[in-house]
Amino acid sequence: MQKYISQHNLDTLLDTLIKRGIRVVAPRMNAGIPLYEPLGSSGEVVSDTLPRRSAKEAFFPVCEDIMSYKKEGQKVTITDIDPGRFPETVLFGVRPCDAAAIPVLDAVFSWDYKDEFFLERRKKTTIIGLACTAADDACFCTAVGLSPSASKGSDLFLTALEGGGYACDTCSEKGEALIANNQALFDGPSTSNPIPFAEPQTDTFDLTKVKAWLNDHFEDPLWDGIATRCVGCGACAFVCPACHCFDIVDEGTEKAGKRRKNWDACGFWKFTHHASGHNPRDLQPKRYRNRIMHKFKYYDDKFGQTLCTGCGRCVRICPVGIDIAAIVEEINKK
């Protein structure tokens, strides 16, 4: 049943959560850039621009320890990381394109082996989505089957209303629990209509047609045409809400250290480089092809979902202006 919360009550809600020791992560300004980061107080929230990095970071950190080791003589003792100690979190102000990517990642992180680092954080986090009212020409969420008001992935979904305050729809028990714990701050459904949603101007892609084209165009001049421009950095993969590849590396001294899991990207030459010197994806067109294939074909083959939510971050950030929407549009027309 739809509820209503005023802006003031929302700030109080966030402040009480912070006082209760719950880590509230929301878009805030950090040295001039909007980023999802833990809040000091509800005043820091910035909800008009899309944060520079995606919300996957609350579940799939940029770098985290997965084990630590100590060496004495011939003996080694390794200590595990206790997932129980991941902090309780409320992820607030998540745009639909960020929230929708998180359930997509659930599939790979629970494929046979359960990655507790991701799944435990998922269990301990309540996601409060926020309808999107500002899109620029890089956004294309409507093209991949999402919309600025899609509540996919959110536990509680807020829609800004004219005259202030938010309509909130609960989408999961976590959302209901959050409302139940803070009953006083929520009122009955309001009648004022929502602030108009953003309208990205790209026409919809037929994802099955795109996948069909990709099925039998592994070798195609299209890849050379795009990827001669790509310089092989990891910016697009790191700002992407859906990219989930990582590296495991040991860091420390001879005596003791940590084994860390941190972001990696298929754009790098080192990603598939063998110690023997052989590299199955040695040139940039092969690497960039893998990025498009993984997003619009491989992930669909394995888990039946598309690994792209149309947030447009990679389009804005690409050093050489490679535009994934233009590429998929071109494939869509073939």
């Binding site: 950090n30 940029v62 310089v231 950095c233 910016a235 790191f238 972001w263 790098f268 050093p319």
Partner: peptide, 16 residues
């Protein structure tokens, strides 16, 4: 330190 903490090692600065 504050600036370098923001870095996510995407190496775009090196690749361009």
């Amino acid at each position: 330190k504050e600036q370098f903490t923001k870095c996510i090692k995407c190496y775009a600065c090196r690749q361009v």
